[in-house]
Write a protein that binds this DNA or RNA. Structure first.
Lengths: 338, 338
DNA sequence: GTGAAAGCGCTAACAC
DNA sequence: GTGTTAGCGCTTTCAC
């Protein structure tokens, strides 16, 4: 297996210097048309593929942006990373993606590994995070964008939905529907920040609306949301008619909950209303259709990407720059399940 | 913003040479315990993070494996990449993930970009692919693993479900159920290989079973599978009772189809049976539950990972090695929709 | 058990 | 418009 051709090989065959090849490749410098044509011809002939490892080391710019999410098996993160990846791609940056499976230790290892690749910026979802991870991000010297939720206070830039606003809208919805006793499905781990903020906000809003204090349900794994929702529904039933509405952390959990309730002969929403989050496409294709919090992950990804690009631009010019704070739009999507 | 500490900084502070730091970091060489301890202490103090860009250039090993999938928004690929990523991770390799959105040109660009990072191996899903992409993969000099389907003949290693076996099992199922007129939903693009093989195999099997030649339906985008399924169902209805079974290329499309049929007042499966692929979790949580082809993507990802590791091992020792051929298990999961 | 020298393949900076 | 020089931060190789 002979070694891949290098820039020097191309240069030799084209009768120019390596520098000229480098320039011809980037279309930016002033290389004569004829020279460029010849160089490109040789490149094609040789099947030369430039080595970005070397380029990155030399230029100090890896062309990489790191993105860390909890999982890729939820449509939310699949779509978000699509929007984010596209936006970065168009700006000539590649996305290096890691999934923590909702495990803070694993996330720490991912962050550590990814920082070794010298990304130019990093975006990370604000689920539970170890101290060490925060320290690593702080010390990385690159723009850090937290999304969906961040540390408190945020490390740098933050893009999130406002959990208090979502909670108030949710409670207002149930208030209108005459529901009195909520159950909230949330993560088992105390480390999950967004989960915690969500529960607190819902609890506060319920209290303000004169409802009973919500029952907190911590079951199952976020990696198996359908099953998690189903188990939550069972717990809600164990409350013996005291629960008339179940708020899930995502639509898949809501669908699992609805399914479990129907199998037990309960009526949804008559006996128990079920409320999701995300407005995944599937919500419109199950019966009863799922009432949920509408949130556009593709657009969120694009927004995150734009902020990363601005932050990078500012960092490059070492312009002092206030951290971005972007609150993402959402809406309550009223359907049949709640 | 002062520059990140380098290995030389660590070496200086620890009173050793850079080489010793490098060894201490890898636990492999013979460094005295005391020296290693001191080095690690300094590393911690400085918050030193080794630069893998430099390491990769120097050693010629990037520690990266490239994985190219059509999309991350289907549970199939989310889970598959999870299994694959985990397997590689455990072997000390990082996964560089790209999604083509089912666009061959985009896939070409992704492959080109990713090869610049000098991955040690590449796994790529066998959907449609440009000539150039194949040439790039061929010339890359690294192990290439095609999965789910590959070029014909495969470039190197291949891991796939057997489309003929799946088709025969599917037709056998419908035969038992007394269905006579199938419609097959498939990709619009002719470039999609797996789609083409699937359709051919189903057509052949239907003929062998004495059924009417299946109607081929090409609508919608694979990126919006629910809508695609719904549109396919409408086309099937336009056939005016001539279609009694619809075979979809994935479970989301099947769910979209079922939903559309129910909305039109049709009965599923009585009027039209609907058949999916993948056995996504959601299949068990919708009504009617979806009959589908059971296939374990997490396990498939692990298998792909193992083969990549073997291939890498062989390549390292430049052991001549037959290309792997692995056929993935599947089973027909009979539920209510077909 | 440790260190010195050389170089991986590219690009920044400057010279012409 | 093009070439030269000097590294980027590591690891390889070999010397001790």
């Amino acid at each position: 297996m002979k070694p891949l051709p290098t820039m020097a090989d191309v240069a030799r065959l084209a009768g120019v210097s390596a520098m000229t090849v480098s320039r011809a490749l980037r279309h930016d410098a002033s290389v004569s048309c004829r020279t460029r044509a010849r160089v490109l011809e040789v490149i094609d002939e040789l099947g030369y593929v430039p080595d970005k490892v070397a380029g990155a080391l030399s230029s100090g710019r890896s062309g990489l942006v790191a993105v860390v999410v909890p999982t890729l098996t939820l449509p939310l993160f699949g779509s978000l990373t699509r929007g984010l990846g596209d936006t970065l791609f168009q700006a000539g940056l590649e996305m290096f993606l890691g999934a923590s499976d909702y495990d803070p230790d694993r996330e720490e290892r991912i962050v550590k590994d990814v920082l070794r690749r010298r990304p130019e910026a990093i975006a990370i979802a604000g689920v539970g995070r170890t101290e060490k991870t925060s320290a690593l991000l702080q010390a990385s010297g690159i723009p850090v964008v937290e999304f969906l939720d961040g540390a408190d206070p945020p490390i740098d830039h933050l893009i999130s939905v406002d959990p208090v606003a979502v909670a108030q809208a949710t409670i207002a919805h149930f208030s209108r529907k005459g529901r009195r006793s909520l159950a909230i499905l949330t993560q088992r781990e105390q480390t999950h920040r967004r989960g915690a903020a969500r529960v607190d906000a819902l609890t506060d809003a319920a209290k303000a609306a004169g409802m009973a204090p919500p029952r907190i349900i911590r079951v199952g794994s976020p990696l198996a949301p359908f099953e998690q929702g189903a188990r939550a529904a069972m717990e809600a039933l164990d409350a013996d008619g005291e629960v008339d509405a179940l708020v899930c952390m995502n639509d898949h959990a809501a669908i699992g909950a609805v399914d479990a309730l129907l199998r037990r002969g309960m009526r949804v929403p008559d006996d128990v209303a079920v409320f999701g989050f995300g407005d995944y496409e599937i919500c419109r294709h199950v019966r009863p259709e799922i009432t949920t919090v509408g949130f556009n992950p593709l657009k969120a990804g694009v927004e995150i990407g734009k902020i990363m690009l601005s932050a990078l631009e500012a960092a490059r010019r070492s312009t002092a720059q206030d951290p971005y704070r972007l609150t993402l739009d959402f809406e309550i999507v009223e359907r049949a399940s709640a």
